[in-house]
């Protein structure tokens, strides 16, 4: 049984945000939605302080609170473990947004154009206008582990996590290879091997007991 998952090695992340941009371009997410942001934070104390980076995305939880919260059934887990938000079915109740401890769900509020400091927005770019029209206003969307790439790859005999065309855009783009993707149930997959060689791994908000399939190496 295939169960897709990702490991992110925080020791390798340099905060370049290439994954953030690659995701934005690949998925054309609504203007205020960033499915794969990289959070910057400071660790240590002067003179030993340094910047650290935390790439975030949907954790594709095995016990996903968003699925339990959704009244319309728009959120569901595929057989391969990927959690999908179906915008056609979503009614915009946003219970999933409050239930997710990772902020992985984004409401398309019908805005376009970058938010400026005074609360106004600038004129939307062509890309922003396209993204605005591509999504249904009032619905929630999220990271899909680039399910369309995975599905394309598996249909064409490619291996997600190994062949770039079948691997999530954020993983392919990362210049430091801090993101590793693959089948968690396959001991020979890149992600399983990475965990054996570089583990242990941890998850965000372990107290939330979500069974996250996105894990981190080097989590504080």
């Amino acid at each position: 049984m295939t169960r897709w998952g990702m490991v992110i090695d925080l020791g390798r992340c340099i905060g370049c945000q290439a994954c953030t941009v690659a995701c934005k371009v690949e998925n054309q997410s609504p203007v205020d939605a960033w499915y794969a942001p990289v959070v910057e934070y400071e660790v240590g104390r002067y003179p030993d302080a340094q910047m650290a980076y935390l790439p975030m995305l949907c954790n594709h939880c095995t016990d996903a609170p968003c699925i339990k919260a959704c009244p319309s059934g728009a959120l569901h887990r595929r057989d391969d473990g990927i959690v999908i938000a179906d915008e056609e079915i979503c009614i915009g109740a946003r219970a999933c947004m409050t239930a997710c401890p990772y902020g992985a769900l984004h409401l398309h509020e019908g805005r376009s154009g970058e938010l400026l400091g005074d609360g106004t927005r600038n004129t939307p770019s062509i890309l922003e206008r396209y993204a605005h029209e591509r999504h249904i206003e009032g619905t929630v969307s999220k990271c899909t582990y680039c399910a369309h790439r995975i599905d394309f790859g598996t249909e064409h005999g490619l291996t997600p996590g190994i062949d770039p065309e079948a691997t999530p855009a954020c993983v392919v783009t990362c210049p430091t290879e801090c993101r590793v993707f693959g089948d968690l149930d396959d001991p020979d997959s890149p992600v399983s091997r990475y965990v054996v060689e570089h583990g242990p791994t941890g998850v965000l908000r372990p107290d939330a007991r979500t069974g996250a399939t996105t894990a981190y190496v080097g989590l504080p």
């Binding site: 205020d32 939605a33 942001p37 959070v39 947004m97 902020g103 984004h106 400091g117």
Partner: peptide
């Protein structure tokens, strides 16, 4: 000048410093 709350995305994790406690806006 900071943006009024109504102008901000409801997803509070989109604020820059996600490692701080965040108040839900949904």
């Amino acid at each position: 000048m900071s943006a009024p709350v109504s102008a901000l995305p409801q997803n509070v994790f989109m604020d820059r410093w996600a490692l701080e406690p965040k108040t839900q806006r949904v």
